[in-house]
Design a binder for these strands. Structure first.
Lengths: 192, 192, 192, 192
DNA sequence: CCGTAAACGAGACGGTACGTCTGGTCTTTGG
DNA sequence: CCAAAGACCAGACGTACCGTCTCGTTTACGG
């Protein structure tokens, strides 16, 4: 490894302060108006301390945001429809937090512009969502609700896409009824 | 109105050159690295000529991009599934053009950050997509494939969301098979 | 020339404001604590306006300082000693101004570190001082006070050097008596 | 005093390495581009080892430079002119060394900006030069070459100033002829 | 057919943020 | 307690971009 053996170690409180400050600024002003100086000032840190950890502004926002978007495998609720509903609720909750609302659209733009960031996005965010979907589908197969599992990418797109569009583009109907309607229709779409 | 009565009229070739230059720059370098100076230089125009037409960079990109995203009402293909397939193909084609690939994610970030832009986005892009969806659903009801039409926003999210996710996030499976799979499952989801 | 033919011309008031602001900041805080941001703020200008005119901080300070160090040919006072006294007084006045006191030592360091700046320094400041010395010597020869003129560089060093040392290093004796003593001794040194 | 009584004694090799590294960097890149990190790296030392010895960058450069500028009382050569010549040669040699050429102008800027440093400069460098001048003058008085000694500060300025200007500003004529010419004229200036 | 008004290319303007670098301090491990 | 290593804060550096403004010139329309 290239881990240094000597010298002053990184201060974990600085790590935390930087990420917390980033989230604060994102929540208050949104991605477009986030500045590195503002984050540094808020964190009580120097800019060098930030750039020692993250090479660019995009990496910083990525790190501060993606960590909070982490999903847990949804608990078994007894049926495919309710499992999907739980998963959708979880995604809506994480992607709909005040911080996420301010940062995710900008983050998506960064990710689609930077292959390196895109690769990391695949391995963390996308992979994690697909794990959760796989778990739900496996349970449905085990219950006998499904004969064969649909293409994972298609189902992923069918689940995450509508949530994304509703959160960042439409946001008109009531949230829970949207989640319920979506879960029901997805179950139908999958079970044919 | 604020229509001027006298003075030199706007040169339409400048209009066209600006939009063409914007699309070129978007395609080559993407939204993040598009600069107004680059567009002006490419168009052989001054920056004032751009700002006379578009108040901000966002408006310029919006105008250059959204015009090409315009959908036509899909022709009647005889069934709901094939109608949906045609609509999805159309959306994939317009949103998947080289220009759109470079600009849409950034444009979405702008839209979600600027309420004024969001309103215009609703009235043009979103409304147009929903018109097409409504036409397809009406035909399905008329054919007797559907009893009652689902909530428009939910179906819109169900259709546009997966397309968006596949284009800008996943893009792994083959395009036509994705479109086919998605159309089939949407038809199932709608007809129950 | 590479003078641009089109475009907005430089605003002379900005030129003046930048130089005036530079002199103000030099006088108030000295060279070591002068910052480009402070100059820009004081001038009511953007940093780009400064860097469009001066490539580096050194060039800016050089331009702002050297202009004020310009000497006039001393008037004929009737004798070599009094001519030298007048010249020394002039140098003491220009190099001893509040702005010069704050900037000259730093400027000398820049000049001796940057050959390009040194060349310009030779052609303006140094050449101008030597013109004045030459004029004084010529008059002395014409009066018959001198048979042959001493080496110009040596006399230049003999005149400017002590002034420099007194101003920036010693500064203990009373100024006019120093000038008088120096002028007398230089006249002796020259006339043998 | 703040002399430590216990613990590990300072490593004299580190002392030497720091000063040697400072002189190397000064010679190679000049004062303006000397950084503490560069000195530390070159010395194979940590920055703390430097700051434990010198409070500021200025003090470090001062220490590294001034030590080499130390003059010895010039030996009696039999006449005022030759004594002055010997002293001038010594000053030219010390202030004209590669290290001094790179550091003295910057050092002068520091000294004139920082009263504390100026005081130490007076007590070491300036005082030492004046000791040498005094010794030369005393000998001249003793020989009967001089009736009364001139003002020490004025003579100091008359001697050191020209040397400084020639070394750092003009540097055109041949060195030894400059020294000879200067010594002769100073002797004339002093003896009237 | 001439004057007015607004368009045009070019590029300077004030302002803001970027990512880098430096100075001087602090904190670790190890001798 | 001292050593090297290197993280820390603060803040200046020079660059890039935005949206505005100013130049000198060109081009339509109305009187």
């Amino acid at each position: 490894m290239d881990t240094p053996r000597t010298g002053r170690p990184r201060d974990e409180r600085v790590d935390a302060a930087i990420l917390a400050a980033t989230r604060d600024v994102l929540t208050e002003t949104g991605y477009a108006r986030l500045t590195m100086d503002a984050v540094a000032a808020r964190a009580g840190a120097g800019k060098a301390a930030i750039y020692r950890r993250y090479a660019t502004k995009q990496e910083l926002v990525y790190a501060a945001t993606v960590h909070d978007l982490d999903l847990r495998i949804p608990p078994d609720t007894g049926s495919l429809t309710t499992d999907l509903k739980a998963l959708i609720d979880d995604i809506l909750a994480t992607m709909g937090s005040p911080t996420a609302l301010g940062s995710v659209p900008g983050l998506m733009a960064d990710v689609s512009a930077d292959p390196a960031l895109a690769a990391r996005f695949q391995q963390t965010f996308v992979a994690r969502q697909q794990e959760c979907i796989t778990a739900v589908l496996d349970r449905a197969v085990h219950r006998g609700e499904l004969q064969d599992k649909p293409d994972l990418d298609v189902l992923h797109a069918l689940l995450a896409g509508p949530v994304f569009v509703w959160l960042y583009l439409l946001r008109r109907s009531e949230r829970d009824s949207f989640a319920h309607d979506l879960a029901t229709r997805l179950a139908d779409a999958v079970t044919k």
